[in-house]
Design a protein around this nucleic acid. Structure first.
Lengths: 189, 189
DNA sequence: TGTGTCATGTAAGTCGTTACATGATTGA
DNA sequence: TCAATCATGTAACGACTTACATGACACA
């Protein structure tokens, strides 16, 4: 009962096909929700059945046909109810952190590599989010945009994502450096 | 196949009962993994059946009896294999961020409240993590501890958690301020 | 000629959540 | 006396993951 609302929120700023939604879940929505395309297609079907979204067929000539979805009034009402209810605590799941927790008992060299790869990935994502923010903001500076802009929801969640990626990168680099130094120290003994 | 490794990693620094594990998943492990007590009891049973941990009964007089678990050699080997394999991308899920994404179409006053509650919760958790780190570090300063300490895994993951909580708090307060200001501006028109 | 993009799903199996169930002791 | 802590689970249901399936066009 929760992917539902993430999909509704993502569908709020225009019509999307399942395929386009999947992209959105890889970029902007990834800042607060993670879902695979199969889940999205299934959820879109359920949402339509429940009348929270409506789909319309778009026939294309050079591309496969697609269905575009938009939120109905019932969908907006559902989001409103959801927003007023208490939020579940946010949750994180990270394989790499599990490994780092176990670092005192396992070989660190694959971990150092993974940390550095992660740092690069986080940097790349931070860059992507930065340019996304630039685009949304247009000519305005951030304060002005947040005061007067019309669609600040995605902007705000991207800001959170950006700060997350930057911090994640910094932590990965720091941790990799610590593990490298300890390796070296052990090798010299 | 993933809670498994989080449990093994959590069990690495001593014996735990299911109940104590659940506590650990509320505090330190929460920085990278989330699981409910029922899941932990079930997972402990599976891990024992698979020979990755062993349990021993401890009879108590004033308290209900309990079973303490520790990682076996097979368990360590499993963790080693896991650590060397590629990590899945980390994933986040946050109800409140879903709501903020939809902020342009819904009533913001419950969101402002929730953001401020979250900020307080994040601050409290940051305080808790700070004192946890102090305890682990003992008399040493951080650099020294990370260079020479014997059990730095939990320390490193707590550092990540602390930075997460601080950034989360800052974002919540900023976002709440933005929404408040916009509310006010609309009221004055 | 092969890789990437567009486009949508099904099926099987695993995992996670919610609700329920019990019961003694400790401390405010 | 009431709430919290210690201690461990089961059962039913809903959500998620992994693997599979198809097929045309664009671009290098």
């Amino acid at each position: 009962m929760a992917l539902r609302h993430a999909v509704l929120a993502a569908l709020l700023h225009g019509e999307y096909s399942g395929y386009q939604l999947a992209k959105a879940f890889d970029i902007g929505v990834a800042n607060f929700w993670h879902a695979l395309p199969q889940q999205l297609y299934a959820e879109l079907a359920k949402l339509e059945k429940d009348g929270l979204i409506t789909g319309r067929q778009v026939i294309q000539e050079t591309r496969p046909n697609k269905r575009l979805f938009q939120v109905t009034d019932a969908g907006f009402a559902e989001l409103e109810t959801f927003a007023a209810a208490v939020s579940k605590p946010s949750f994180i799941r990270d394989d790499l952190l599990v490994k780092i927790h176990a670092v005192d008992r396992i070989d660190t060299s694959p971990l150092i590599e993974q940390l550095e790869e992660r740092a690069s990935a986080a940097e790349a994502r931070a860059g992507l989010l930065t340019s996304l923010l630039d685009t949304m903001r247009g000519a305005l500076d951030e304060e002005e945009y947040l005061r007067t802009g019309e669609r600040i929801g995605p902007y705000l969640t991207c800001l959170r994502g950006l700060s997350f990626e930057r911090e994640h990168r910094a932590w990965c680099l720091r941790t990799a450096a610590v593990l490298r130094e300890r390796r070296q120290a052990r090798a010299e003994r």
